[in-house]
Design a protein around this nucleic acid. Structure first.
Lengths: 96, 96
DNA sequence: TGTATAATTAGACAAACATCTAAATATTAT
DNA sequence: ATAATATTTAGATGTTTGTCTAATTATACA
């Protein structure tokens, strides 16, 4: 959960996710979309991978990155959990 | 959006949100739940307020903090937007 | 086998961040 | 008015983070 929020707390990384939403891309193609250096992008991709937000597959000399949407379930679950505020307080005891 | 992700990228701040989910609390009560200093908690509360995740109301000499769930809609919208991956690509042109 | 291309790793550096103590502000009570 | 309590602001400090260049690893091609 920590690595997830950390990964999302950066505009470059969020932009990468939005690019990958459209189509899979190689590390080089992703880097070309930005003005920052390739190693920096590589580092961003590493953090996204650690958070399980992307999956990387080596294809010959290239590495193809794709969005992993499964993590979003966890994120949405967390947000919804918080949204269920104190209003309409439920008993913890099971109702018969 | 940036301030939102930044605010969520800290375990202490997320824990504060979960406490406020249960009930409103004063700054002091929140600080008492942690081992870190009051000024540090005050700073965390400031970031949460900047992100609109909490609302603060001064009540006499106390400041009562409460969770603001409206921002979660925006967050969930963002996540769902990303989840709608490339599969089943839709035309941008309106269907008649 | 050597060279070009793709990507990552290593190490350095400045900016941002979490934390602290001390001081300031605001409110309540004596 | 003075003292006590609640909270924030100011300023300092160590750590984490984003970025860079240079070097390394791995694959493809000629």
């Amino acid at each position: 959960m920590n690595s997830l929020f950390k990964a999302l707390d950066d505009p470059t990384r969020r932009q990468i996710l939005e690019m990958l939403k459209e189509k899979d891309m190689t590390a080089g193609d992703i880097a070309d979309a930005f003005t920052i250096s390739k190693p920096s992008i590589s580092h961003h991709l590493d953090l996204l991978r650690q958070a399980n937000l992307v999956i990387s597959i080596k294809e010959g000399q290239f590495v193809r990155y794709s969005l992993n949407t499964t993590v979003f379930d966890e994120l949405i679950g967390w947000v919804i959990g918080l949204s269920e505020k104190k209003s309409a307080k439920k008993k913890t005891t099971k109702s018969k």
